[in-house]
Structures are given as C-alpha cells and as structure tokens.
C-alpha cells in the first residue's frame, strides 16, 4: 500500500484521538451556547448551568424570532440578508466591469485607474472609520440599506481576481468573436460572463460571509433598532448596568446569527475553499 512506509512512529489511533480532541475543543463553545438556548433564565442565573439541553428550545427561539429584546430577530436576519447580498452582488458587479475595462481595452490613464483601485487594498474600513462615517452621514445614509452597503462595496480584491482570470482567457476567443461581428458588450455577456461562472460563485460565497459578519460599520450606521443587523444587534441585547442578561434568548440569537454563513461554508465547501485560495493570491 502506498503511504504506509512513513506511517511508523506515532500510532494512527493517536492521530485520530488528537483530531477528535481538537474538534471537541473547537465545538465546545457552540455546544454550551446551544444548551443555554434550550433552558430557562433561572437555570442559568443559578450557576452552574445544566450540561445537557433542556426542553425550552421552541420557546426561546420563538421569543427571539418574534420579539427579541430591542428588535425581533426575524427583522435583524432580514436586514443582514439584504446587507450581505447587497455587498456580495454589488462588489462582484462593479469589480467584473472594471476588470473587463482594464484587461480588454487600451485607453488613456488606464494604469492610473488600475493603481487607484489597487490602493484601496490597503484601506480597511476600521482604519478610516471616523471620516467614512462623516461622509455617509453627510449623504443622509444613516439608517438606510444604501448606507450599510455602498461604502463597503469597493474592493480591489475582487477586481484583481477577475483581472487574473481574464488574463488566462485565450486571445483566440476574442478574435473569433470579432470575426463573427460581436462587439465588446456581446462578447462580455455571451462569452466572458458564462466562462466566469465558477469564479463568480466562489467569490460570492466569500463576500456573502464578509458582508454578513460586518460589525463596526452597522454599529455606527444604524441607530434605529429596526435597521440593526443581527451580528451587531446581539451586542444591543445586553442590558446596561446591573441587570442580568437574558442569556437563553441571547444565545438562541447568537446561534441563528451564525447559521446562514456556517451553512454556506459547509454546503458549498468546494466553492468556499476555492474562494479563500483565490482571494488570498
């Protein structure tokens, strides 16, 4: 059997054991959160909390979804979905267009535009947070979906990814398209876009997770509870002062907040891994 020669040394059982121990350690916080989301508030307020799930699953999740604490969770889930989809689709749309212009056309200042986009690679929103907030506030974008989405959709990473991909597309295709009399828009829609399907899908998975998990930006941009996204809204669920937090409802919300992106990673694993590897090149 191939691969058996180097298997001497540590036994295979030890290998499996350390992997299982590692997974157990990594999953432990989720298990604790799940147990907490199925018990009552008094059970948590009198520590130690139970180690096995209780019988209040439906009650806690129902309370969270329909009422929440400041804002019902279904509303925050909807806001998060709109924000994540808006960021993912918006980034892909503006990036694929600009990459197409840079690769398939020659025009004055082409490289200037290229470098202008490239520079944004170095500017995470956390770094320029105060002035970016002022700009968004100046446009009246507070408490709006455009305020949540637009400032986050410019991305050099996606533009680069498409540029790299377009450069690998054989020149014969564009020659053939020209012989057939197809113009640049025809070529883009009929040939380039279908060829980019896998890249678009992989990028979509990564950008959806990125958008869903945004925290600081929605924290500043949304002041009304009905515009909260779920990831930032969870912080608002903690009481100020000495009141005891409603842990069962908060933990149910935390699990619902992580469910969509985790499902995307688990069920679209191939695309997720491709997206991660591509975006870090």
């Amino acid at each position: 059997m191939s691969g058996m020669v180097e298997k001497r040394g540590i036994g295979t059982w030890l290998t499996h054991l350390s992997l299982i121990a590692g997974i157990a350690a990594i999953c432990f916080p989720i298990y604790v959160a799940f147990v907490a989301s199925t018990v009552t508030q008094p059970e948590i307020a009198r520590p130690p909390m139970p180690l096995l799930p209780g019988s209040h699953f439906l009650e806690n999740y129902g309370t969270a979804l329909s009422q929440g604490i400041n804002s019902p969770v279904w509303l925050m889930l909807m806001n998060s979905s709109i924000m994540a989809l808006g960021i993912a689709i918006g980034k892909i749309a503006i990036s694929i267009l600009s990459a197409y212009a840079i690769v398939y056309f020659r025009f004055p200042f082409r490289m200037v535009f290229f470098w202008l986009i490239f520079l944004t690679l170095m500017l995470p929103v956390e770094v320029r947070i105060v002035p970016t907030y002022e700009v968004a506030a100046g446009f009246g974008m507070l408490n709006s979906y455009s305020g949540l989405i637009l400032p986050l959709i410019a991305s050099a990473t996606a533009t680069f990814l498409f540029r790299q991909f377009f450069l690998t597309v054989p020149d014969e295709l564009i020659e053939a398209a020209r012989v057939d009399g197809a113009g640049p828009i025809r070529f883009f829609i009929d040939i380039l876009l279908p060829m980019s399907r896998t890249n678009i899908a992989a990028l979509f998975v990564i950008l959806f997770i990125y958008g869903w998990n945004q925290y600081l930006w929605p924290l500043l941009i949304t002041t009304k509870p009905e515009m909260n996204t779920i990831v930032m809204g969870i912080k608002q669920m903690f009481p100020s002062g000495d009141d005891v937090a409603e842990w069962p409802v908060i933990m149910a919300t935390a699990l619902m907040a992580m469910l969509p992106p985790v499902a995307v990673v688990v069920f679209m694993q191939g695309l997720f891994v491709k997206g991660l590897v591509d975006t870090e090149k």
């Binding site: 959160a33 998990n213 925290y215 908060i250 935390a254 907040a257 694993q269």
Partner: peptide, 14 residues
Amino acid sequence: IWPYAVAPAIAGVL
C-alpha cells in the same frame, strides 16, 4: 473549517 464563518463579534459573545 466552519468556525471561519462565525463573525468575530459572535465568537466574542460565545
């Protein structure tokens, strides 16, 4: 690989 999908803020709450 799934913890990568958990937002830092949610990880903080857990």
